[in-house]
């Protein structure tokens, strides 16, 4: 156990945001889900008691008849905003006084940094470079993440959960988002920051960064395992495998989408276009962990080998 190495990584000024992220993301997940479960209990109660549903104010927050439903922005909101601004300023000031922004040696194109890391918020993409070629990890995937986020409101046909925390009414979408945000985005950032060392090799927290370490990974391409050698054969074989993945993942996703009676109800509200777009993004998102597993379990580098691109 090399605690010194661990401390060197964790205390690196630029890694402080990730250490912060390790605390705030679980906290706010708990904070949001706690309210979601509180609302879910109320919803269950109201669903079971139609008479109560007619008269109840339908929030977990206290309410008495005669209370105004709205309050003046001044002072009730503005004082909080003012307070928040002061608190943020104090935090930023204290942070800036106690911790200096990193400044390395002057830039030197002849001296490569090892490991040479992107800013922390792009480390998820850099981590993806291990499993995908740069054109997928650096260009296609980021574009798909952005577009995928943008289409979210247009493919989510569930009218429930608009403006309040809930889990039961939106299980599918919330689990999908948590999977994408926490499992894929945040945890890949954490891996890229705390675990990846020289040569972008995997160093468990607490082990020493060995700059001379070499790993001879025997990564193979899938067509070679199956003994397919011709160029055209590889292209066709890869296309078939990728196509099979799309079909299998699509069927699996469809099963999930129509799993419960409630999900079927939401599914019935979707247009063909909405359904197709959702399927494509879900399948592509799932491809990331699938490729990671394929690489880690079977040491397979490429699945689809062509003269122009490799997947």
């Amino acid at each position: 156990m090399d605690l010194h190495q661990l401390w060197t990584i964790v205390s690196l000024p630029d890694n402080v945001p990730i250490v912060l992220l390790l605390f705030v993301v679980p906290f706010y997940t708990w904070y949001g889900m706690r309210q979601a479960f509180a609302n879910d209990r109320l919803i269950a109660q109201l669903e079971g008691d139609p008479a109560m549903a007619k008269t109840h104010h339908r929030k977990v927050q206290p309410f008495k008849t005669g209370w105004a439903r709205e309050v003046h922005v001044w002072p009730y909101l503005l004082r909080i905003e003012f307070l928040a601004a002061i608190i943020v300023t104090v935090i930023l000031m204290v942070w800036s006084i106690t911790l200096n922004a990193p400044l390395e040696e002057p830039s030197n194109p002849t001296l490569t940094m090892n490991p040479s890391k992107a800013p922390w918020y792009f480390l998820g993409l850099q981590e993806m470079l291990v499993y995908f070629d740069p054109w997928i990890a650096g260009v296609v995937m980021p574009s798909l993440i952005i577009i995928g986020l943008m289409v979210v409101p247009y493919i989510d046909t569930n009218p429930l959960g608009n403006g309040y925390y809930t889990f039961k009414q939106r299980k599918f979408s919330i689990l999908t988002f948590i999977f994408g945000f926490i499992v894929l985005w945040v945890s890949m950032i954490v891996i890229g920051t705390l675990i990846r060392g020289p040569g972008w090799m995997w160093f468990w927290p607490g082990t020493t960064w060995d700059h001379n370490r070499l790993i001879f990974e025997v990564n193979r391409d899938l067509p070679d395992i199956f003994g397919i050698s011709g160029r055209v054969g590889k292209i066709i074989f890869g296309a078939i495998v990728v196509g099979l993945y799309f079909i299998a993942a699509g069927i699996g996703m469809h099963k999930l989408i129509v799993k419960t009676p409630f999900n079927r109800k939401i599914y019935a509200r979707m247009s063909v276009l909405q359904y197709t777009v959702m399927q494509v993004f879900l399948i592509v998102m799932l491809a990331l962990p699938v490729k990671i597993l394929v690489r880690l379990l079977f040491r397979i580098k490429y699945i689809w080998v062509t003269p122009w691109f490799n997947v």
């Binding site: 009218p159 608009n162 988002f177």
Partner: peptide, 16 residues
């Protein structure tokens, strides 16, 4: 910004 997006998603505020 990321936490703001997380909150907006959890509350379904992107809906109609």
């Amino acid at each position: 910004v990321e936490l703001h997006m997380f909150r907006v998603f959890l509350t379904g505020s992107y809906k109609k």
